[in-house]
């Protein structure tokens, strides 16, 4: 696997981590009731969306530049 392929795999795992961190924050917020965790959940879900957007942008850019083979 090339670097671009591994990078896409890495971004997928990072997105999953961001989603699970967000879910964890929601869970802790329900248990603890501290607003800091709600902010963390929102930030994590925003990061997950940003990572998906970046992943799509990266794939398209590599394809356009013919670096994806």
């Amino acid at each position: 696997m090339s670097l671009k392929g591994f990078h896409i795999v890495f971004i997928v795992f990072s997105t999953l981590l961001a989603l699970s961190t967000g879910a964890w924050c929601v869970w802790v917020d329900l248990v603890e009731g501290a607003p800091v965790y709600l902010a963390g959940a929102i930030a994590s879900f925003v990061c997950a969306i940003a990572l998906v957007v970046y992943g799509v942008w990266f794939y398209r850019k590599m394809k356009r530049l013919r670096i994806i083979t």
Binding site: L3, F6, H7, F10, S14, L17, S20
Partner: peptide, 16 residues
């Protein structure tokens, strides 16, 4: 870069 991605991927598991 492949090595670096692997090291970062390990952290993706260490963190949670």
């Amino acid at each position: 870069g492949l090595f670096w991605h692997f090291v970062d991927l390990v952290w993706i598991f260490v963190f949670p």
